[in-house]
């Protein structure tokens, strides 16, 4: 007999982790931008140690989600892309960190 049962509710805090942030490269991007108000593309590339194309791909995903803001500027003739967290991105990263600490059992 198959009695209809309500879907099981998720109680473990890992289910609350933001999947968009909880990926190796995107997490590093979010962490770097949360610590620095603005960082240029080169700083992120050097700090996270990834290729230009991989970094661009993940930045695009974060931009599309509204977490990251990109501003292009020229310094002399050199183009420079500045990246920063949006308010939405900063809030999402704060929530993500709270969940991580909950899982680890650290006080937030």
């Amino acid at each position: 007999m198959n009695a209809a049962r309500p879907p099981q509710e998720h109680t473990h805090p890992r289910h609350d982790l933001d999947d968009l942030i909880h990926a190796p490269v995107r997490l590093s991007i979010m962490a770097a931008l949360a610590a620095a108000d603005q960082a240029d593309f080169r700083f992120l590339k050097e700090t996270i140690e990834v290729s230009d194309s991989l970094l661009s791909k993940h930045l695009l995903a974060l931009e599309e989600a509204g977490y990251v803001n990109a501003t292009k500027a020229f310094e002399g003739k050199r183009p420079r892309t500045w990246l920063s967290l949006t308010d939405q991105g900063r809030a999402a990263f704060g929530r993500y960190m709270d969940v991580l600490r909950q899982i680890i059992g650290e006080p937030s």
């Binding site: 590093s28 962490a31 949360a34 960082a39 700090t47 600490r101 680890i104």
Partner: peptide
């Protein structure tokens, strides 16, 4: 990515920025 590894990465990147 484990929660511990994620926290370690956040600390590492934060230290680079500092």
């Amino acid at each position: 990515l484990s929660a511990g590894a994620a926290l370690d990465e956040v600390r590492r990147v934060g230290e680079e920025v500092r």
